[in-house]
Design a protein around this nucleic acid. Sequence first.
DNA 1: TAATTAATTTATAATGATTCTAAAGTAGTG
DNA 2: CACTACTTTAGAATCATTATAAATTAATTA
Lengths: 138, 138
Amino acid sequence: MSNKDIFIEKLKASGLRPTKQRIAICKLLFQRKDTFHFTINNLNNILKNSSVEKISLATIYNTIHVFKKKGYLKEISINSYKSYFDTNVTHHHHFFNESTNEIIDLKDSDVGKIKIKKVIPGKKIKTIEVLVKIENSN
Amino acid sequence: MSNKDIFIEKLKASGLRPTKQRIAICKLLFQRKDTFHFTINNLNNILKNSSVEKISLATIYNTIHVFKKKGYLKEISINSYKSYFDTNVTHHHHFFNESTNEIIDLKDSDVGKIKIKKVIPGKKIKTIEVLVKIENSN
DNA sequence: TAATTAATTTATAATGATTCTAAAGTAGTG
DNA sequence: CACTACTTTAGAATCATTATAAATTAATTA
Ligand SMILES: [Mn+2]
Ligand SMILES: [Mn+2]
Ligand SMILES: [Zn+2]
Ligand SMILES: [Zn+2]
């Protein structure tokens, strides 16, 4: 199955028709081997500078939000300044380089087992997320 | 030293004159024994409903941001929907109850030692923050 | 104390990210 | 082609936050 077919599958599974705009967005998001962490603004800039015809912001927002709802993307909370999305939807953690604003994935197994010693009656743990803030060590 | 004196100290140390508006904000923030996690909107509502005369939003934003810069408050990233501030400026972690949107402090010692197994050359770790998402277990 | 200067508060305007809307365009079906 | 449904898009609306500038209050000086 070609990449394009995979994109078409994802779009259909999300209830979206495979238009050229949406396929261009899929290429950007899913045609890469490493995780992609991005803001809507990033995406818009990349799409503006790629040869393809311009895609409206509304379409970008809509598509990203549908993918998020479907589970093909997740939104991550790194800081209060920007809203980031993540193409890695498995459970994992992050390095955030405060010198460069770069986000790097940390595999679940890169973080030793975390033991939460406080229990809250009537509540259960859904997920544990670790954010490791780093900086250039000069 | 009275509470009010402490507020006046904090304000002065932050380069702000102790006006009645700012002292009212300080009371809300610092005159409590437990951590207070809040949004600007929370604060504004509480101040509106308290007997004191109305305080403008601009003053609230200004004061909170100066306290944040001074280190008397910190801003925490829980999700992308709201921006929260925290009166607990020590290093600590959080439970976030997704059923109620409630934020609860986890002492540093409530979380077992975290071992980050991935090293990034040229970078050093500043802080490690854990966010434990919980839900009502019914 | 009165006059002068500096800081503060406030209402309101500006900004910027996100969402909404409604008109024009495109695709699928027969 | 005719018909219908879905999509894209520009621009408007919304909402949180920040900026502005006039009016108020506080501090300092005479
Ligand atoms: Mn969003
Ligand atoms: Mn802020
Ligand atoms: Zn990631
Ligand atoms: Zn806290």
